[in-house]
Design a protein around this nucleic acid. Sequence first.
DNA 1: CTTGAAATGTAGCCAAGGCTACATCTTCTA
DNA 2: TAGAAGATGTAGCCTTGGCTACATTTCAAG
Lengths: 149, 149
Amino acid sequence: MSESSPPKRAELPAEPTQASRFSKARTAQSGALMEDYVELISDLIGEGGEARPTDIARRLGVSHPTAIKTISRLKREGLAVAKPYRGVFLTEAGENLAERVRARHRVVVDLLLAVGVPAEAAEQDAEGIEHHVSDTTLVAFGRFLQRGR
Amino acid sequence: MSESSPPKRAELPAEPTQASRFSKARTAQSGALMEDYVELISDLIGEGGEARPTDIARRLGVSHPTAIKTISRLKREGLAVAKPYRGVFLTEAGENLAERVRARHRVVVDLLLAVGVPAEAAEQDAEGIEHHVSDTTLVAFGRFLQRGR
DNA sequence: CTTGAAATGTAGCCAAGGCTACATCTTCTA
DNA sequence: TAGAAGATGTAGCCTTGGCTACATTTCAAG
């Protein structure tokens, strides 16, 4: 193919940068649900000693079959274990993930509060925001909070 | 049904609050793609006078059929218009949305920078975060930035 | 020890958002 | 002005994350 032919039309520079930004945002969003489940299961076990699909569904605001289906994926990905009609439990990997998610959630909420977001909105928005906060940003948030106190 | 029967098991308080938080986070994420498309289309038209599906696909990092399918949804929802083999254009509603999204994006990036997030990470993360920033939080961000300068 | 309510699980449906493969249209250029 | 290249569009498939409807299992009262 001849390299000499000039661009036919506008020819934008392709910008792989922007494309990868969008891709990454979408990919991040994919694991978000898993993170929510894992964190919630960990919380439920902490609160009442067990995590039942029905409680998970209720807390997440979804139907119980939806919860059960997602729990299957959790099992498939090695984050949880569950035997039929018994509760759900986290694997080592699941617990680790839960702890990381919990820590990140705290930092995000604290940061929102620190910049003046009302408590209610901070909790609300953090639920969505946290899944898109990279490690780099998380560290920056931490430093900012440190400075502030 | 007899109200007298005591709870059989743990009986958690149902917490509609938390459930609705999660639900809202998921719903927000649903419109995210539409917002990205609308903003990008607006940008492309601004840059080169037209928005072609191929360019949209490239900038978003998806295949062109995916872009085309999403553009159909944009049309279906009254945000864009397009005639076959001609470019894509925004309706009044689409333009308005684009402007709001653009403004919000700026504020989010600025806030991240203001709290010390490195530029690269700020741009990267803002792409995902912005879709979960409520009006309340946006206003708070604005005030914080105001104070800072 | 029976039994019925609540929990759990299964089947099958839907829309969104991806993809590849293939078909068709436009447009630039030789 | 005829081709070929590139843009556009269509078909069909996949996974995720929802749902409802129905079947099965547990378990606490009676």
